[in-house]
């Protein structure tokens, strides 16, 4: 029998549910895996929690977990191995290496400090960020005065 250490290790993540979010349960699981990949909590080859464990922990329907894992497979992020579980296979789009990510975060923090010094509160910062993000998306990023 082929030995696979990753199959025996517990999954690095554990799911939680937010019943008030209005997001369907299976999608919450999908989003938490994507988030864990972005944060570096999950890496390629890691095992996702077993269906039975998720069901026992959250008291949710097994089909919901299976649906979430199918969706992750469909998105190319996970793959099932017969009798062993579901494993991380890829990264979601828009993920950068941890070091680069940390540098970007520092830059953003610098910006936030200067924004606060200029008198902007948190809501104001979010508004400026979202506004700038919209410009970027619509290709108007070069014309900001």
């Amino acid at each position: 029998m082929e030995l696979d250490k990753s199959a025996d290790r517990p999954s690095p993540i554990e799911f939680r549910l937010d019943p008030a979010s209005g997001v369907p349960t299976y999608l919450q699981l999908v989003q938490q895996v994507e988030q864990a990949l972005r944060m570096g909590w999950l890496a390629e080859g890691d095992r996702l929690p077993r269906v039975r464990e998720v069901v026992a922990g959250l008291a949710i329907n097994p089909n919901t977990v299976l649906k979430a894992y199918r969706e992750l497979e469909h998105r190319g992020l996970a793959a099932g191995r017969r009798g062993q579980g579901t494993f991380v296979r890829g990264m979601p789009a828009g993920v950068v290496p941890l070091r680069e990510r940390a540098a970007l975060r520092r830059g953003l923090l610098d910006w936030m400090r200067s924004a606060r010094a200029a008198g902007l509160d948190e809501g104001g910062m979010v508004a400026v960020f979202e506004d700038a993000l919209r410009d970027l998306r619509e290709g108007r990023d070069g014309v900001v005065a």
């Binding site: 269906v51 039975r52 069901v55 026992a56 922990g57 959250l58 008291a59 949710i60 329907n61 097994p62």
Partner: peptide, 14 residues
């Protein structure tokens, strides 16, 4: 209730 549904649904999974 949570523990009951957890036990019930685990049986469904198994």
């Amino acid at each position: 209730r949570h523990d009951f549904m957890s036990a019930l649904l685990t049986a469904v999974a198994e």
